[in-house]
Every structure is written in C-alpha cells, then in structure tokens.
Nucleic acid binder design. Sequence first.
DNA 1: ACAGAATACTTGAACTTGTCAATGATTGAA
DNA 2: TTCAATCATTGACAAGTTCAAGTATTCTGT
Lengths: 134, 134
Amino acid sequence: MDDLSFLIARANAQSIAAGNAALAEFGLKVRSYSVLTLAAAEPRPSQREIAEFLRLDPSQVVALVDELQRAGLATREPDPRDRRANVIGVTLAGRDLQRHAQRALARAERELRADLTDAERTMLADLLRKTAFA
Amino acid sequence: MDDLSFLIARANAQSIAAGNAALAEFGLKVRSYSVLTLAAAEPRPSQREIAEFLRLDPSQVVALVDELQRAGLATREPDPRDRRANVIGVTLAGRDLQRHAQRALARAERELRADLTDAERTMLADLLRKTAFA
DNA sequence: ACAGAATACTTGAACTTGTCAATGATTGAA
DNA sequence: TTCAATCATTGACAAGTTCAAGTATTCTGT
C-alpha cells in the first residue's frame, strides 16, 4: 500500500477537502474555482479547452459555466471566429472573487502542506509536473 | 493553475485510469484492489480500519467487502474480541489474485510514470508520504 | 450490576460526479 | 457542394459521496 498511486490518491483527497473548505466562503468549490480561474486568463478559453485542460467531459463544463454565469461571475459569448464555440470570460465581480479565492486557496494549501519545506514543495511540484504532463 | 493541488489532481486522475485499466483483467478496480490488499495484510483489518485508512465512509466499505466476498476473494468474520466488528481477510484465491494484481499494477505504474527516473519516483513517493501522512 | 453513552456495521435516501449517446449548429475538407 | 468533423447541449444512466437512522455490542461511571 505504499505505492505512488495510493499516495497520490490520498494527497488528492486532502487537497480537495482543504480546498473546498477554503473556497466555501466564496460559494465556490475546487471545480468551479478552476473554471473561474481559466476563464479569467488571457486568452479566454472555449468550453472545449476548459474540458480538455481539466480533463472533464464537455457536458460537465456546460453545467459549471451555467452555474458561474447564474452567479454573475462568468460570461459566455459565441466566438466570432467559430460560432460553434463559446468564449468563456469573467465579469468584474468574477475577477475580483477569483483573486480573493486564489489567495485563500494558496493559504490553505501552504497550511495543508506545512510539513514540507518550501524547497520540498517546489521539488514535489516539479516532479508532479514532469509526470502529469508527459 | 500550476499549484500543487492541481498537479496532484491531474496525476491522480491518470493513476486511477491507468490503474483501473491494469486491474480490469482481474475483475478489480483501484478501490476493490485497495480493500483486497488491506485484507491480505496481517493483522487482518476491521471494516472501520479499512474505512479510516482509505478515507471512505464505512457504508462504502460494506459494499466493497460484499463484492469481494461474493467473488470468493475476501472473508468476513465477526471479531471474537469485539463482536460488533468484522475481521476482513482473504481466501486463497483472494491472496493469489492480489499478488498477480499487485504485479500488474506496479508494471502499469512504472509505465505511466516512465518519464521519471527510479530516483525521482522514490523522491516523489517520499515527499508525498511526508505530506499525506502528517 | 446497571443505565446510558459510545462504537461497528448496515441500510437506504439524497446528492454529486463521471460517462456516454444523440442532436443541432457550424465549420473544414474532398 | 456534399460529407465528415467539431463544439456545445441535453438527457440518461452508472458510480461515488455523504448523511441519518437502526441494530447489536461494548464501554463508562456509578
């Protein structure tokens, strides 16, 4: 039971729990926060790009964007260059909330991973990046 | 989006997908394999201990043990020392299957994490262990 | 010894997530 | 221009999570 996949699974469960707890005060979850963050980036992504990046089914992205839009945080416009696609962006409120949520999340993560030094956290991130984007 | 939790989530999704694929030929999934592996250990765990270790709700463990038992892989006996609790173990077939599945899983994992050297994999496991069992 | 709190498992319900197939609109390619 | 591919959407369904309630058993304090 000391294999990589098990350790990763456990660390992930902790991340999600801590993340959702930290995001609760913003009315967000890890999922909706991720979508909001991508929507706040430039260039604004399409739903397909969001789905691809987060490894979600496109139909899940529909629901997530619906939710953010209803909350007045995200915008959804047809892409003028490809009218099949929607361009997802953020409202002013969305951008503001994203910033606050990002800070809260970073704080929660540092707390959760407090047993690692800064150097170890960096090392861990590097290794994960190397294997997770192969 | 390059924070630890995101990377962990992504690596986890890959692990589960690759793990389930590798375990399919044994009729197992990552979940049932984990329970089977714990059941094969000494001393044999109770369902509560399995739930705690895998961070599952006790009711989920009921279903998982049911499944393994129906497949003739796991045994479930009341603990003579505490008749509220069940002691979960493995049958001969269960032990045998666990061994084969373990090998297949290790192989799949090495393959999935092939972009890391052995030393890096060890380092990654050490870091995860340090943060996941704080 | 006894009552009451606590624990282990089980069941079932509600809810969230994950997966898939089908559809309409639009675009790209032969 | 026609045919295939792509993007978003919907709806159906399986799988996973979380909770509350119930039974049996054990533990605690008197």
